[in-house]
């Protein structure tokens, strides 16, 4: 037997996990009670349904952001890509009158742009932050250019049905978001792609050395993000009844914040989809609750910023408490 003791911090890890994921859940409940007290209409089935639907694109993008952050490939571009994909759908729909062709064009645009990002990261060796930041600029720019900064009306019964409640204020869009979450959680936990997502984020060189074609998996991951952006775009267009070049502005920040306040490490290599779900719910409740209090956008931003910072500090403190102070 080896003399090296292996009985260190098994339990604290679990405690930390518990605190990291359920601590925020507690905060979420407090927040919901607070909003209900301020505005009783908050805790009604109708409003909760609206809240979930408003934020369905956020839920979908947050799933992609979880993969991106765990694998250390931060993506700032999804909201801009969403707008561009929406514009592609709108233009094709306008020209052909076919929703199907429009959807194909929209998805193709989203996947193509994300793959373009991935190729620059993998082949060009450029930092993901820079690549996706540039994309944040140019994809939005293209979306605005193609439309002359005007929205394109997209009305189609099939698309409208996506955000029309079918029962209990629940629309297909909400179910879609839920499905995306479950699929994302499954892929992350049970498949090769998921395993390599963690491995790349933890130590990319070692992963490559172990014979994992990391470049290929990054391409797959970004393509998957493209599909998610496409889905979020469908919900957005359906909700607005139009393809707007300024759609989803700031969504990428909400998505990234959801992943992080949920308790996933920004430094990559660890995390899970359940944490992202709680984080995204927290942001959704904030967005909806603050919005219903009749405040100005500016005031909403202040409270939202403060709540996010509190949640982040809470995460940091709880982690420190359990891990013990490190010099």
């Amino acid at each position: 037997m080896t003399t090296l003791s292996s009985a260190t911090n098994v339990r604290p890890a679990r405690w930390r996990e518990w605190l990291a994921s359920y601590g925020l859940l507690g905060a979420l409940f407090v927040l919901m009670i607070l909003f209900t007290a301020l505005n009783p209409r908050f805790f009604t089935l109708a409003n909760l349904g609206t809240m979930l639907e408003q934020n369905a694109p956020l839920f979908i993008i947050a799933v992609g952001a979880t993969f991106a952050i765990i694998s250390q490939n931060i993506d700032l571009s999804p909201a801009s890509v969403l707008a561009l994909a929406g514009v592609a759908l709108g233009l094709v729909f306008q020209a052909t009158g076919s929703l199907l062709l429009g959807i194909i064009a929209g998805f193709a645009a989203a996947i193509a742009v994300e793959l373009f990002n991935a190729v620059l990261i993998v082949r060009g060796g450029i930092n993901p932050l820079i690549v996706t930041l540039a994309c944040w600029i140019w994809a939005r720019g293209l979306a605005v250019s193609f439309t002359g900064a005007n929205s394109i009306l997209v009305r189609d019964p099939a698309l409208d049905a996506l955000t029309r409640p079918i029962a209990l204020e629940i629309s297909p869009a909400i179910l879609l978001a839920l499905l995306v979450f479950m699929a994302g959680g499954f892929i992350l936990a049970r498949t090769r792609l998921g395993r390599y997502t963690y491995a790349m984020g933890s130590d990319e060189r070692a992963t490559l050395q172990a014979g994992v074609p990391t470049g290929k998996y990054k391409l797959i991951m970004f393509a998957m993000f493209g599909v998610l952006v496409g889905l979020a775009m469908l919900v957005t267009v359906s909700r607005l009844g139009a393809a707007a070049p300024d759609a989803a502005y700031g969504l990428e920040l909400d998505a990234i914040v959801s992943v992080i306040i949920g308790g996933n490490a920004f430094s990559g290599g660890e995390g899970n989809m359940r944490r992202t779900l709680i984080g995204a719910l927290f942001i959704a409740v904030l967005n909806n609750g603050l919005g219903n209090l009749g405040m100005l956008d500016a005031q909403i931003a202040v409270y939202k910023g403060a709540a996010i910072l509190l949640a982040l500090l809470f995460g940091v403190v709880s982690t420190r408490l359990v891990k013990g102070k490190r010099a």
């Binding site: 395993r195 963690y198 491995a199 984020g201 933890s202 130590d203 060189r205 070692a206 992963t207 050395q209 172990a210 014979g211 994992v212 290599g269 660890e270």
Partner: peptide
Amino acid sequence: LSLVPQLSVADNIFLG
């Protein structure tokens, strides 16, 4: 060492 620090021992052995 070329182990991936945040993966489990088993995951590391069979990585790839």
